[in-house]
């Protein structure tokens, strides 16, 4: 018998939906930002790489947050 959705289920579902695009947005946004800053400072390759690294860090953090939220249920 299916159980009713609780507020906790709703919040977890919403967090999951938000995280999926935040991970992509994190990688893309940080890389683009890194590229733009690197381009201004004269080395776009280094800028992009630093941006990608920060983006990866953010993605890992998002995944960690999501796992923590799902485990706390």
């Amino acid at each position: 018998m299916p159980r009713n959705r609780t507020d906790q289920d709703n919040r977890s579902g919403n967090a999951l939906a938000a995280s999926a695009w935040n991970i992509i947005g994190g990688m893309l946004g940080a890389s683009l930002l890194g590229y733009a800053i690197g381009n201004k400072m004269g080395d776009k390759v280094v800028g992009t790489l630093i941006g990608m690294f920060i983006g990866l860090m953010y993605c890992s953090y998002e995944v960690w947050k999501l796992i923590r939220r799902l485990n706390s249920k």
């Binding site: 695009w21 935040n22 947005g25 946004g29 940080a30």
Partner: peptide, 20 residues
């Protein structure tokens, strides 16, 4: 480091909304 990532996350969330 976490506070920095969370602060960055505010802008990333808005960016993800825009791109999506």
């Amino acid at each position: 480091g976490i506070v920095f990532l969370e602060f960055l996350g505010i802008f990333i969330k808005a960016f993800a909304l825009m791109v999506r």
